[in-house]
Design a protein around this nucleic acid. Structure first.
Lengths: 189, 189
DNA sequence: GATTTTATTGAACATACTGTTGATTATTTT
DNA sequence: AAAATAATCAACAGTATGTTCAATAAAATC
């Protein structure tokens, strides 16, 4: 919408804050991270931190929001270039973005994970799945929401494992697996 | 194993700490809860708190551990009385226990949720599911862990929704739904 | 390139919570 | 009733918090 150039100094400040924050998150849970040590590590004044964020939790929230927005943007860009937007393709696009930001997603979904962020990702993934469930009319209206949550949470579980394993598998592989589980269900004899 | 009678005063102290803690968790996230306000609310001395717990997070962890142990105990009790332990029955037993402690499970899995606790519950639920997946030989060895996590995380999603909705549905209903999703897969045309 | 605007710094500040101590009091167990 | 144990009280140093304001540095604008 509006480019609104941001002051170089602000860009730098936010960058070092984020980098240091990620470093710290690898070492300890959010609750043990103080603003002071974060600023010491980033080598910025404490007052500067407060000029941009309320506290650690606000910082985390903003970073999470940018990730979610990043996925949305990634999907929008893709949809502009391609008329057809099959669920599977969209799913793989999401996985691509997650892969590009694997370090952060791993931190926020796994070890030092935040349950709210997980909820945001579930909602977003759900938007891609929802259509296929919605069109199946042998599922009672009451069950739809439940099944939707089952699929979305299950997908998060797989993505979390995928990240924890260090992205050994390709986005396509995971995408197919998720799509298979969500549409034809479990393989069974 | 060992009954080890606990001093009445300790029992009381722990009780008021837990009750106050739950009250506070309803109001605000763990990170905003101070030991001081917790002790004020529980009307105990701060030194007394430190005699039992390291900090808020330790307190939370202990409460979570007791819940998990509670489920295990609940299952063991049932297994002693009943020779057959079909997966569905075990699942319903788990749901029963969750229902009995709905307030706390709701807090820890939903609103002020803890991702570690969620992981513990997933692991426990997985133990009940695992057998049925393990016996299906048309699933590649590599995929088993992924599918297991898909099912367990999906189940958590449904349980979370069930709790958030105020337990409108019966444990049987939810149990059947979960079992259906885990065994025959999604309903499809 | 000079000027204006804006961001960061540094220092100081009151405030609040932390975690620990040791002596005292109260309660429970034996 | 005596011994053991738990909770209280008050005090303590240590530390992070969040805010302030003047000074400085750097960027954007003209």
């Amino acid at each position: 919408m509006k480019p609104e150039k941001i002051d170089r100094r602000v860009r730098y400040t936010k960058m070092v804050i984020r980098d240091s924050f990620i470093q710290l998150l690898k070492e300890k849970p959010l609750s043990k991270i103080t603003i002071k040590e974060l600023c010491d590590m980033a080598d910025i004044n404490r007052a500067t931190f407060y000029a941009h964020y309320l506290d650690q939790y606000d910082l985390l929230r903003q970073m999470e929001k940018e990730l979610i927005d990043g996925i949305r943007q990634h999907l929008d860009d893709y949809n502009l270039q391609n008329a057809t937007s099959a669920p599977l393709e969209m799913l793989i696009k999401i996985l691509e973005f997650i892969k590009e930001n694997a370090q952060l997603f791993d931190l926020l979904l796994n070890f030092n994970g935040d349950i709210e962020f997980q909820g945001d990702v579930i909602e977003l993934i759900g938007q891609q799945y929802f259509y296929s469930i919605h069109t199946q009319n042998d599922v009672s209206e009451n069950d739809k929401e439940y099944i939707f949550l089952f699929l979305a949470n299950g997908s998060i579980g797989i993505i979390r494992k995928w990240l924890a394993d260090g992205l050994v598998r390709s986005t396509k592989e995971i995408g197919y697996l998720l799509m298979r589980l969500a549409t034809t269900g479990l393989p069974h004899a």
